[in-house]
Design a protein around this nucleic acid. Sequence first.
DNA 1: CCGTAAGCGAGACGGTACGTCGAGTCTTGGG
DNA 2: CCCAAGACTCGACGTACCGTCTCGCTTACGG
Lengths: 239, 239, 239, 239
Amino acid sequence: MAERAQRKTPDSSRRSERSRRAIHDAALSLIGEVGYAKTTIEGIAARAGVGKQTIYRWWPSKAAVLLEAFLDLSERAMREEGQAGEAGKTGGAEEPGAAGEPEAAGEPEAADGAYAIPDTGDLETDLKRVLRATVDQMNDPRFEVPSRALAAEGIVNAELGTEFARRMLEPQLQLYVHRLTAAQAEGVGGVRRGIDLRIALELLVGPIAHRWMLRTAPLTHAYADTVVEYALYGLAPRP
Amino acid sequence: MAERAQRKTPDSSRRSERSRRAIHDAALSLIGEVGYAKTTIEGIAARAGVGKQTIYRWWPSKAAVLLEAFLDLSERAMREEGQAGEAGKTGGAEEPGAAGEPEAAGEPEAADGAYAIPDTGDLETDLKRVLRATVDQMNDPRFEVPSRALAAEGIVNAELGTEFARRMLEPQLQLYVHRLTAAQAEGVGGVRRGIDLRIALELLVGPIAHRWMLRTAPLTHAYADTVVEYALYGLAPRP
Amino acid sequence: MAERAQRKTPDSSRRSERSRRAIHDAALSLIGEVGYAKTTIEGIAARAGVGKQTIYRWWPSKAAVLLEAFLDLSERAMREEGQAGEAGKTGGAEEPGAAGEPEAAGEPEAADGAYAIPDTGDLETDLKRVLRATVDQMNDPRFEVPSRALAAEGIVNAELGTEFARRMLEPQLQLYVHRLTAAQAEGVGGVRRGIDLRIALELLVGPIAHRWMLRTAPLTHAYADTVVEYALYGLAPRP
Amino acid sequence: MAERAQRKTPDSSRRSERSRRAIHDAALSLIGEVGYAKTTIEGIAARAGVGKQTIYRWWPSKAAVLLEAFLDLSERAMREEGQAGEAGKTGGAEEPGAAGEPEAAGEPEAADGAYAIPDTGDLETDLKRVLRATVDQMNDPRFEVPSRALAAEGIVNAELGTEFARRMLEPQLQLYVHRLTAAQAEGVGGVRRGIDLRIALELLVGPIAHRWMLRTAPLTHAYADTVVEYALYGLAPRP
DNA sequence: CCGTAAGCGAGACGGTACGTCGAGTCTTGGG
DNA sequence: CCCAAGACTCGACGTACCGTCTCGCTTACGG
């Protein structure tokens, strides 16, 4: 989306990295301060000390600016975390995915193997750990406003929604699929054969997203734990 | 929301029913035609043959107009359906709630008893029936655009989101709770004691909502069925 | 203008005198406070504690309300003055004429003879006296704002302008004509025969009005005196 | 007035001359067609094919637009006239001044010397000529509507009134002062020494303005002539 | 003496214009 | 040719009043 030109494809090699950064920062800070709806392109340009045209030249819409800025933010956040912590704790899921593909800029993305759901052999514990991390991230105010803005935009705007899902969410969701695949291979103590893992994943992640969306009740670790338990063992009485 | 005044509480007994209706209709048709973002208050007023002030007098925002119009639509749709069909088929869930209250009166929960999840004694079948109906409704183009618009607005705007959930979704969700409560009482073939029914419900409805939101894959009856099965019997191998 | 009906001539015998008065007062006070342009019918109605329709029923325009209110004011001012002073001093000219015909209400208008330019036999002195009074009235802040509003409206709106001139100004101007007629009869020390008195009057009153209109210089008694002298004896060197 | 900024002083060097012209033309034509009161900024913008903001950016009010447009018109009218005629005929007075300055430059008095009251040595004749021209201009329908609008606005709005007088009227009035000064130097057949020329001028011009304002009688050449005669030789019998 | 038909206060209504904001495009001057 | 700056056209915002139209209510009259 970043590379999409506006009229006659500007020469991206001459692009000012300084401006790009300033626009990201301005966009994120403004959205944090006044909300997405009241954030304007003009406002971003002014705060970034940039001409409006510089934004229009490189991005097709306000949402695209935010998406890129947010991707950048997540990536940076992840890198910091990755340095000092171990990978397992990191794995957010749902909203603010960790391993977005880097766009435009060329920094190599090492994540793939680095950020994975840990496999202690105990599926239940592993899933709880990851889902708790996801819940934490969703509660992090730094991420909440932009996440909501992007999710909202994505619900209504299919193109951006797809982009958002592909770049932010899918990488995370794939981690689940990996872990569940492993669990399915284990036999006992894992996941039943024949289970569609994509749907299995949604059984875990859907309820979290639902509660986040509707704000019907707070998102807590306890909630995450219960979701994992119910999903693994079902609602029906065990025979 | 209708009674909420704007500046110095207009006299709602003098309110023109004709205008209210025309505004609802204009709002829904415009949103269907050009989408929520490009629908303007000015446009609604023009199409409804109404002064802008008449909208501003009675609603605080475009979203509020749409919410009320949509509630009205659902209600009418329900009434029609209720006349010719039986209740079981009706029970939509997630998005476009069926049992909106008559909106002039203020009761938050109006699922008169008329609209309830059927209880054939077979929980799995009953849930599949309802979830399929929900899926159908989500795929109904008449509802899709406004639903997405309201959901998007609700994600970002907590006040409207709460209102939306309270008036559109909760009545439906309560139906699930009722049915699950009955199932829990049954003993065998139902729901395990000790299960938090609110969470149980989210296990069923969350995945549907998730897929609808992210558009990762089409929402089908088969999907609904699978979700019910996984939720009831768990992902783990049965002992 | 007051009697002109709006649609189907309301029954003026049932008219509320209380409202009429309240509207006059509200109109004058509002115009004094915020100026004519920012005075609105709605504002007058609100301050008068009157329904808007009551204004629209009896007056065709804001200007008409003001005209009537101002006429009323002048009349009352005159009556008060007339009680305690002698007539000669009173005679204002130009703008806020004294002897408007009373409208609608039936109070007898005694003015005609009462308010006249004094005839001491010395034309120059008499004219100075009257012109000084006119100047005083134009400088009276109580009259200035409404006068200017009405004059402005009258310049642009011929109908109202005529009405204004006829009811406010003409009575005053006629007084000049009377006095000049007498002066013309006198022979020496008066006005030359063959002089068109209407034009003579304008020679006296025009310069005052001009200066009032353009605000090029303050209106003073000295100015009035000089105008009288120049008008009587001409600009050219006397032979 | 054009350079006066609205909020944060736009850069007048970037100003679009095309728009300025279009706005002038639109304003004058609309005022001619529907009158000043029914002319709206929105209407001017629409007819000029210009955004409203472009008007609000450069002018503080509708009246200011008209003033500038009218100044421009007078200037152009003058230039045309000046090319083909001799100066004497030109001298309008009162309302639509002839010698507007080029307005981009700021000199308040631009009567280059080119436009002056002729001095044939016969003051009476000279004054009649000029006053007749003034009368003609006041009767010219092209000028009447805008003149009345500006005069009306100026009566009520001191700031605009002053501006109007300074830029439109004063240059003309100064011409009178020049001519009268010359006349005063002449001795016999001119103007008496000791006469205040400013007041003398008002004696000539005031009556014309008065009659124009009140519409009490038509403005004719004969009237102009009579005014000159009365003013020069006085109303009183000559000894 | 009692209905009934005004005038009245109140204020909702369909409109028009206001003055402002921001979108997205275009132009200018500087690096 | 990118960029900052910002003027441009356009369209929508939310507000203020317009002049018309009900509403109840009071008030005086005429059957």
